[in-house]
Design a protein around this nucleic acid. Structure first.
Lengths: 120, 120
DNA sequence: CCATCATATGCCTATATGGGCATGCGTCAA
DNA sequence: TTGACGCATGCCCATATAGGCATATGATGG
């Protein structure tokens, strides 16, 4: 069934490097498609397609400005993702080095002898 | 060229819902493959494959425990992603409602007249 | 060494995607 | 209205998946 459609899924939308670059670039203000394409070294159709995905998940907004279409960042959709990741914050602080773990295991063993039900 | 390989790319690794669910489940402790598969309603091969991707990007670590293989969360790889998203924090706070923007634009116009270089 | 349980893989299919290219479409100036 | 410019799409191709299934691999107990 292949991967879930990028459309309507922020996680997938930002899984693509070029799209992340577009978002970063848009932090400094609205930009027309051509300019984005030029600055990021991609073709115009390519930029348009990525922008479409970003638009569909709501990460950017468009505004017709004469012949141009100005794309603006709308980061609100990134918040839930940021929060989801925040749920792991305590875990990346618990130094999870295999080595550290091993050393700690040794310490415990030396002090109280091997134990079984103490992970988690 | 299709999408970049999920392997060696944390963003892509967590772009898949089932993999995110695995990570969440692992927050409560190490688990053998079969248990993960059962709890998440997926087949064993499916779980193994997702775990492989997670292992390749370093989000989980395995530990042989008798006949079983216990998978443990290693959230360190999520930190960079969390930080990348953090770079947008100020943006999702700037109420980016089209409506709000429009209203504010009207306010400014009424006070100082139309201006040009004030976005950004 | 053999049977068995727990996993990892290989293989095949349907699908979604990103890139390249040509072209349709909307807006603006003359 | 016509021509030009700026973008959005449609189409085709190559590729990477996720799933389903069957099976190879590993480790354990006899």
């Amino acid at each position: 069934m292949a991967r879930a459609a990028t459309t309507s899924d922020t996680f997938n939308a930002i899984a693509e490097l070029q799209r992340r670059e577009i978002l970063v670039l848009l932090r400094s203000g609205e930009r027309p498609v051509t300019e984005l394409a030029r600055d990021l070294g991609m073709t115009q159709p390519q930029a348009s397609k990525h922008l479409r995905v970003l638009r569909e998940v709501g990460l950017v907004q468009v505004r017709g400005m004469g012949k141009q279409r100005l794309y603006a960042l709308d980061a609100r959709g990134l918040r839930p993702v940021h929060e989801w990741l925040g749920g792991f914050e305590q875990f990346w602080n618990e130094s999870f080095d295999r080595l550290d773990e091993y050393v700690q295991e040794l310490k415990r063993t030396r002090q109280t002898g091997p134990r079984d039900g103490d992970e988690q």
